[in-house]
Design a protein around this nucleic acid. Structure first.
Lengths: 219, 219
DNA sequence: AATAAACGTGTAACATATACACTATTTATG
DNA sequence: CATAAATAGTGTATATGTTACACGTTTATT
């Protein structure tokens, strides 16, 4: 019986939700895409193992992964009994991927264009996507993907990409004001021939539930 | 590296939330209480394993357990590396416990009076309790503990015991009406010198999320 | 000076949540 | 058989939260 970890790592680019996959260079499922991950070592915590595997396979490092669910069906790995603990993260597009090599190839995929995957990884991604959409509405997970300072429009576009629906600008801002999780910097962000936007930052950049108000985001 | 499953099984009796524990008769932690559970067999799914262990150790059977979280800290078991997948259930008080023997002793404990526990089982219970209070407010998990037919007052008392706060009778009933998950039977429940109550049953007894309306229960 | 582009702001209508108290129906008892 | 005791069942007014919606502001460009 072997124990593995897998990482479902999401990002957003060009207004589309993306997922990080690697191309398998070994049996089984050689040539198929899969979630980054691998076996947990004997004296290694799960949270450590998933970061190690992710970094080894994709180059992505220094991120927080949240445990999602454990997959343990008897037939899920043709090599024998493998239980996998899946983790979830939402990270900035700025992370550099390890250059493709003979041994490894990490790539971002549009969430709507995921190729055929190894093992039960499609199921894991489906579960992760549901969870991500819940997290974005009830936690400040967006602090993991937004830059230190950002505009409210950037933040709204992030929400829209993940939820795949338009939000109302005034309602989005009113809700954020009530939640009181952001603070203004006194700096402006300029990126074109138009009025500059105020930059904001999180009051507290720790990724945690937004306590008092269960904030379910709006139409 | 060994894989285990543990079951956090809640019930309610006498208006108090209870949890099912066993007294350990082997090392390590001999004599301490612990969650029912044990090692997963080579060709056994996780969901099957947890039911098997629970039935072996406590006599409780034919219940649905929902996966909660996996615990894999390196030092959590003094015997060596053991990863445990924890499961959660809420069951009727009617379940018969296996008679205590030299080898086993299963007992219900008031949630406020849990003894010192083996392993990291206190942490698991803390997590499970948070999850249970979320489940009762967003799923129809209560169908697992209520009898086939029940009164609205019984149901409200169940919610009050789990949430440890009083709910308003009229608001509770109004909310249930809106959720439309129950149907009236045409039967009355009589248990004393007072007006009999209508018996209700779940429209659909499958344990699942209550979709449209996120029903967060009221003050 | 005019144009183009994104920024930033408030209010009214509607829906949901909360607080709150009395009448109805039954059995037991004097 | 009248009354008491116990729980069932029911509605409304207020407060809070959600949704829909449009225009003046600020900047760079030509």
């Amino acid at each position: 019986m072997k124990l593995a970890v897998d990482a479902v790592v999401f990002s957003v680019n060009d207004a589309r939700l993306r997922i990080l996959l690697i191309k398998r260079k070994n049996q089984p499922f050689i040539g198929r895409y899969a979630l980054p991950g691998g076996f947990v070592e004997q004296d290694e915590g799960l949270d450590i193992a998933v970061i190690r595997e992710l970094t080894e396979e994709t180059g992505v490092k220094d991120i927080f992964l949240k445990q999602l669910k454990t997959y343990g069906d008897v037939g899920r790995d043709p090599r024998g009994r493998v239980i996998s603990v899946a983790y979830l993260a939402l990270i900035s597009w700025e992370h550099k991927l390890k250059a493709s090599s003979d041994a490894l190839r990490a790539e971002w995929f549009d969430i709507g264009k995921i190729p055929s995957l190894a093992f039960d990884h499609k199921t894991i991604i489906d579960d992760a996507l549901v969870q991500l959409r819940l997290e974005i509405q009830t936690t400040n997970i967006s602090c993991q993907i937004l830059p230190q300072k950002f505009t409210l429009t950037q933040m709204q576009h992030l929400y829209e990409s993940i939820l795949e629906r338009k939000l109302d600008k005034r309602n989005f801002r009113k809700k954020l004001r009530e939640l009181d999780i952001l603070k203004e910097t006194r700096e402006a962000f300029m990126d074109g021939a138009h009025r500059p936007a105020m930059l904001y930052e999180f009051r507290n950049k720790a990724y945690s539930d937004i306590k008092d108000k269960v904030h379910v985001m709006l139409k």
